[in-house]
Amino acid sequence: MNPDVTIVMYHYVRDYQNTKYPDIKGMDVRTFEKQVQYLKNNYNVISMDELVDAIQNGASIDEHSAVLTFDDAYSDHYLYVYPILKKYGVKGAFYVPTGILQDKKVLDVNKIHYILASASHETILQELMLLLDRYRDMYNLETIENYFEKYAHANRWDPEEIIFIKRMLQKGLDQEVRMKITDELFQKFVGQPEEEFSKELYLSTEQILEMQNNGMHFGPHTHDHVWLDSLMKEVQKDQMKKSLHYLKEIGVNLDRWTMCYPYGGYNEDTLTLMEEMGCSAAVTVEPKKFRLNDVNKFELPRLDCNDIEW
């Protein structure tokens, strides 16, 4: 048996009729419920633990199996996703960048989302350019033209200007100046204290444990939600150790833990670490279905929820 498997990837799932930030890209809770109904009717929806059992022990799963995964530990996952999964008897897999809980911070990736949702990209781009000019000499920055040539490449989701803003604030600059600029933009355009915003945006420890007690699977998404493929092996290992330590400390079951690579970024060092650290399986963002026996267990592809044909 070599059944086909579809892992579905979700991020924001929320009530878009009543949100303060309607421009944050995600799935409305009503659409989500309809998609869960569709998946239940057309797939064999299994848990991540059942998939791991099939990978590790050869346990049988049916053709057209599907696993639902949720990245970044948003409070929306407790408020909207969790009740629907319980209603339909589905066990999802949730991946936590643990620094958000330990440090009460907002991930840079989420700061970027909310910056972009709080003003026009033209206004944000103008402010970003002013900040690049301000810090150019202090941090030996390149010209805006050079950065734009490197990073302003439109994709299927965003025009080049938005991609430029994202890439500059994600990895285009050295960490120190990148964090300074991101924080300044966040305060200017969002304007809410970071700790307060973090408590609203992410799951609490109590919510995680309640969800786990009702069959949901939790695993690490690194500690700081970093591009692992941009880091030396020892730094990658430190990110993983911190994340696993924190999850264990708060009571998450790590007997058969699985991993989710932030941004889908990983390399050969990452794969080696997954084996060395006892990871059961890891998911990427490569958008395709797969046959169970035809993939590396540390490179499991996932379809974005918007790519499901239904």
Rank of each mutant, 00 (worst) to 15 (best):
M1A: 07
V8W: 07
Y12A: 14
R14D: 15
N18C: 13
Y21L: 14
V29F: 15
F32C: 06
F32W: 06
Q37M: 10
N42P: 00
L51E: 08
A54C: 09
G58E: 02
V67P: 08
L68H: 13
F70Q: 11
D72N: 08
L79Y: 05
K91G: 01
F94D: 03
I100F: 01
D103A: 02
I112Q: 14
Y114C: 10
A119L: 03
S120G: 12
E122R: 08
T123L: 09
L125P: 02
L131E: 10
R134H: 06
R136V: 08
N140V: 13
T143S: 15
A154G: 07
R156P: 01
E160V: 15
R167Y: 05
R167V: 06
K171H: 13
E176D: 03
E176T: 05
V177L: 00
M179A: 01
T182E: 02
Q187K: 15
V190R: 09
E196Q: 09
E196Y: 04
F197V: 03
K199P: 04
L201G: 11
L201H: 12
T205V: 15
N214G: 05
H225N: 03
W227R: 08
L228Q: 08
L228R: 09
M232C: 00
I250D: 14
G251D: 14
W257S: 01
C260N: 12
C260P: 00
Y261P: 00
Y263L: 14
Y263M: 06
N267C: 13
M274W: 01
E276W: 01
E276S: 02
G278T: 05
A281R: 11
V285Q: 13
P287W: 01
K288D: 02
K288A: 12
L292E: 06
I308R: 04
I308Q: 03
